[in-house]
Design a protein around this nucleic acid. Structure first.
Lengths: 322, 322
DNA sequence: ATGAAAGCGCTAACAG
DNA sequence: CTGTTAGCGCTTTCAT
């Protein structure tokens, strides 16, 4: 593989000039440009990113941290991030923390050692403080709203309220809300939205816990075992909603006749099951794209610094509600 | 961040000695070792991977190439690869080619420039030849069996035959097989397995095409529109099976009473839908783990060079068959 | 067993 | 506008 030196020799200029040309810095004469361009083509030269990183202490690598890659929301998100990043000249390293703090920290350290440019964090295991201390640009994605980090998310409270209200509007009178850990994440917001939608004539309960499929399945099963009259479930994620759906159906109850279900996220999978999942749909692609653009703007010191973006989630009615 | 020089000074030795200690090369005296260890701890030193790569032209980065991250099979696979790689000191960069050759090539080139150690390829867009030409270790995963590349996969033909035979055993007499592009991938093998299972008293048809959800949904819909008597579907991927399932149910047919369905892969999702998907289950985690270990063995020039591993897929009966 | 020094490929002063 | 040169942090001869 050719290096900058051979290119310089070939073009009859110095390595500095080639470097300048490569980075669009300072002026390079037209002749020099042409000669360099030709040499590059002839030698099929590609700058060595590693050497570049060593000097600049910078890379064009973005770390994307997700809590659970098997939750279909995240692959969809990852795809949006990847797409956007790739088109802007960045590479994304997908880090699946698997809900383990250790693993997340390991990833961060490893990437740190390779001069990662910045992070997009869609996980909630580690405090903002830790990310702040990294001293590199970080954007929070679908994380809590009061973040000190720049973030992009949806209007969790309002949207969850909307979805929950719909459940009541369609006749549910005894509801549960499947929420995640309240200390972190957007789940607390969503649970609050749920609560705000509750009216005097209904009873409800908020189940806190893990929002992974298996857990949602089990806690729904349990809730149903205690109280067969539950007729409405609002799940703070679609993946959890799918777990609830399975539990309800396994209990011999019909959806939506006996129990209605509303999820949150808007994953494609919601349209693949039967009945289709009614959900509060986030603009998944937009979320990922916006976060990526935001991060890259920061990386490149662009002017526009809108550090808090809230996109609108909207109700998508399908078959799990009447 | 401390560098090797400060560590050397702190320990009262030369940088060469520190480097030797770090890499377990040559002999380093006990005293030197102890001093270096202390210095490293005190300074919280971590070797700079970028500098290391520049010298050695090596990294501990593995590229994992998948064709479609939104097919739930791949996140599960990715997780296995990631897990294994991480525990062995490697980092994996997940490359989602999105079924686009361009994107796959871009990834390869980008990673090439950063001295990627090797690739695990679970996509079928690019010829083996191209990968061979990279001159770095590559392991094919769930790709075709006659690969020149070292590979790990399941016994596609036999397992598919098993699944298809089961359909007939349970009474299906008019079947279709949803297969992928025949020129590549394991899909041809699976389709052959399907065909081999067909008996004289049944009629069948193989539908070639894209195996993505949407396509599977549409081609099943179409097939059903042409012939309502179809009573068995063998899909070469679970994701496709899900699409078929939806199409069948939307056509007002019952599963498994009117139409039985068998998939291939064994993704967790198969157990989340209702009825649960009967499928030919691959040991997904094992597949990913094996491929990763194989690649890393090659990278580290380990002795054992089993270059062709075929794991067993087995029938997992759930609700989409009688 | 250990140190000195060259060099990996590139960028960034600095000098002109 | 361009060239010279000193590093970036590490590994690796080559001596000793």
């Amino acid at each position: 593989m050719a290096n900058i030196k051979t290119v310089a020799k070939h073009a009859g200029v110095s390595v500095a000039t080639v470097s300048r040309f490569l980075n669009n810095k300072d002026y390079v004469s037209q002749e020099a440009k042409a000669a360099i361009e030709r040499a590059i083509k002839e030698l099929n030269y590609r700058p060595n990113q590693v050497a570049r990183s060593l000097t600049t202490k910078q890379t064009n690598i973005i770390g994307l941290i997700v809590p659970d890659i098997t939750n279909p929301f995240f692959p969809q998100l990852a795809r949006a991030v990847e797409d956007t990043a790739l088109s802007l000249g960045y590479t994304v390293v997908l880090c699946n923390s698997d809900e383990q703090e250790e693993k997340e920290k390991l990833y961060i350290e490893r990437l740190r050692q390779t001069y990662v440019a910045g992070f997009i964090v869609a996980s909630n295991l580690i405090s903002e403080q830790s990310y702040l201390e990294l001293n590199i640009p970080v954007v929070a994605l679908d994380r809590k709203d009061n973040s000190q980090l720049p973030y992009v998310s949806t209007n969790n409270f309002e949207a969850a309220k909307l979805g929950s209200a719909y459940l009541i509007e369609r006749g549910a009178t005894n509801l549960i809300c499947l929420s995640g850990p309240q200390n972190a994440g957007t789940f607390a917001e969503r649970a609050k939205g749920f609560e705000a939608a509750m009216t005097d004539n209904v009873s409800y309960r908020i189940v806190e816990g893990d929002l992974r499929y298996q857990y949602a399945f089990e806690s729904t099963k349990e809730a149903l075992a205690q109280d067969r009259t539950i007729d409405g479930v609002f799940a703070c994620s679609d993946y959890a909603a799918l777990g609830a759906l399975k539990a309800i159906q396994e209990a011999g109850l019909r959806v939506p006749e006996d129990v209605q279900v509303v999820g949150y996220d808007g994953i494609e999978l919601g349209d693949m099951v039967l009945p289709g999942l009614t959900t509060v749909a986030q603009p998944v692609y937009g979320l990922g794209e916006t976060a990526t653009r935001m991060l890259i703007s920061k990386l490149e010191d662009k002017e526009i610094q809108q550090t808090r973006v809230v996109l609108e989630a909207s109700l998508c009615v399908r078959g799990t509600t009447k």
